[in-house]
Design a protein around this nucleic acid. Structure first.
Lengths: 327, 327
DNA sequence: CTGTTAGCGCTTTCAT
DNA sequence: ATGAAAGCGCTAACAG
């Protein structure tokens, strides 16, 4: 910067102003300086700028599992919408481990990122708020319901989605519905289970523990769940998986063991990831507005940073996608 | 830092030395200062440190599509292996567009990252080398063959993998094999097509353009490909997809149109992503060492940065996974 | 409209 | 073993 100041015969300040698009610069000097900048191919030093401005135009995104399409799509959505506003994104993968979330927050804060978007975090939110104050970043929570805590959040009505799915099955005549739950420490997993329970209650069907199998949202868990359900004396006539990945595992087990879907057993998933439609039979599932989650979280962050004021929460809704895996 | 210097009655320099783990510091002062650091919960400012040291302990990773498990797994592998060495990772998604790759490089270089790992980049490598010199970062290329250009790279023998797949089909008795290619500007896509052609030649089977359909590596492309192949007068008895995602699309089309696999038509994929095994029939495919690609790229980068010297290329190999989609 | 000057928080000679 | 001071590249008052 110093050199380009020299080359164009002005002070560094003026160069800085040209770079910053300040209005207080003579048209002619502006052009001259800009010319030199272009010619030399000068690139500003974001570190120095950040150090000086106390702002980095960089955001952190913390994901439980970047190799899961559901989350990576959210990450992608965030990056896309934020980039057009001149922000860059730091991505951290935590494998769903709280300690990793915490160290990600710390590491991010050392880099003076302006804000952190936590996707489906498991961290205690009071702790998060403490960190955000101590390290001075704007927090946003995505894909987890937040209540009574001043952190802007966007989430999906998981319970409502599961209610719809369960109800659909019951109306189809199913009474014994197996449920593959997610990890009990994941808020969304609980919500989905609650949706299932709620519908059973409404329809006067007793809730049975043995019809619930708990997994960790991965394909093999679904496989194991199906194996378990089919070992039962009274086998379920339908199975709901708390996410599509586990539904895929179920599908796999059923088909390799000679069961036909939906003839012998009905199956419902949750998420509507891309492959679900391509499965055979195409999976009936609860579609989440995946991209929207990320996009909204990003927008909220931009807003939050801009205004410095808490932005209102956003609740998105699922929609039930009927395909060919139930009857 | 200043305040903790004051609190422990030493100079900033000493604090800096304590933080940096310098040996030239009295045991007692070390402990005293460390105590204060811990108590205050001090966090270093990575920006200032970076500015001063001209090193940020941060790497950039540029991916064509972060929402594709294949790439996000690679990204995850990189982050995992690099994190234990104190490095953080900036992830950029380019949607496979060269211009985005270039702006990602620029944006990353402004942040003074120490190195950039480009995964399956489409950029002209001479240009990359120019950038790396101009902006002073260490480049590593992953998942693309690099020859005659001084950029360390790790890639997979795509052609060899496809040769194996094609040969397998031919030995099964197939003569009319449809091939779903990837984008012609993607190096790996060309390599895979070449593998296919090579085997045809070896076995004296004439190469026919109409048996090749070009897609963009996504599920719908496979669907379209299958539709195309089955509209042919002489339909292929087997189809090879250049990646598993497209194979899934093919599977979908075939099954929804009453074709049985492998009875009516055989199918082979490429990549061996997680779902491929869970499909029905389980997909016979060419497995890539996905995690290894990322891990090796990361290690090479660490090495490169450490020694400042070019590290040798690494060529990984596929292995053919026979499952149930061929006969 | 433009330049001077003082930091931003940290590392690193160079003295002591 | 410790400290003073310069400097990394940039922005932001404050003067002019």
């Amino acid at each position: 910067m110093k050199s380009i100041a020299k080359m164009s015969g002005v002070s560094v300040t003026t160069v800085s102003r040209v770079l910053g698009g300040s209005s207080k610069v003579n048209q002619k000097t502006y052009k001259r300086v800009m010319g030199v900048i272009k010619k030399v191919g000068y690139r500003p030093n974001a570190l120095a700028r950040g150090l000086s401005m106390q702002k980095t135009r960089t955001l952190g995104v913390i994901l439980p599992d970047a190799s899961n399409t559901f989350f990576s799509k959210i990450g992608k959505a965030i990056e896309n919408t934020v980039r057009s506003h001149g922000y860059s994104v730091f991505l951290c993968d935590t494998d769903g481990i709280v300690d990793n979330e915490i160290s990600a927050i710390k590491s991010l804060s050392e880099r003076w990122i302006d804000g952190i978007i936590l996707v489906a975090p498991r961290i205690d939110l009071r702790m998060l708020i403490r960190f955000s104050q101590e390290y001075e970043f704007y927090p946003i929570v995505a894909d987890r319901k937040v209540e009574g805590i001043p952190i802007p959040a966007v989430w999906v009505d998981n319970m409502g989605g599961m209610i719809q799915a369960t109800e659909y099955l019951i109306k189809l005549g199913h009474k014994r519905i197996g449920f593959v739950a997610g990890p009990p420490d994941v808020f969304n997993a609980i919500q989905r289970l609650n949706g299932y329970k709620e519908v059973l209650k409404r329809y006067g069907i007793p809730y049975q523990e043995k019809l619930v199998f708990t997994g960790r949202f991965m394909i093999p868990d679904g496989y194991a769940a199906a194996e378990y359900f089919l070992s039962l004396k009274e086998k379920p006539t339908a199975i709901i998986a708390s996410n599509d990945l586990m539904a895929i595992g179920i599908l796999k087990y059923l088909k390799s063991n000679g069961f036909e879907i939906p003839k012998d057993i009905s199956l419902v998933g949750f998420d509507d990831i891309e492959i679900s439609e391509a499965l055979y039979p195409a999976l009936t599932t609860v579609a989440q507005p995946i991209y929207e989650i990320g996009k909204n979280a990003a927008k909220m962050m931009l807003d939050y940073i801009e205004t410095g004021r808490l932005v209102p929460n956003i609740v998105l809704h699922t929609h039930f996608v009927v395909r060919d895996s139930c009857r």
